[in-house]
Design a protein around this nucleic acid. Sequence first.
DNA 1: CGCAGTCTAGCAC
DNA 2: GTGCTAGACTGCG
Length: 114
Amino acid sequence: MRFSEKVWQLCRKVPKGKVTTYKEIAAAMKTKAYRAVGNALNRNPMTLFAKGSIQKRDIVPCHRVVGSDGSLVGFARGLGKKAEMLRKEGIKVKNNKLVNFEEALYTYYGKRKV
DNA sequence: CGCAGTCTAGCAC
DNA sequence: GTGCTAGACTGCG
């Protein structure tokens, strides 16, 4: 479970109006299981995991997590919903893809130089 | 476009 | 308790 918890915390670290990628999260935890990251986000956070450092009030904003391409991959609630939420946060989405992706991209390493 | 790599969670035995 | 399958992904051919 440690894995999932870490994923959620990293997700919560993402400020509003910003997004992150599975790759970044996985890299932040020194892993390469991008799939496992998404998997953890998919199953656990939605069910509210009030345990340990995780606060039930602070659910994981899984909608702020996008693919490495800045595309709205996955999301069981519906990509359209995800896009809408992101747009409300100030992130522009076009055709299930982030317009200002790199602009709104939040990295745990500080910065990412193109 | 299709296959391989990586990790966790769930189900079956 | 151990083993196999499936999955919100990514990278290479």
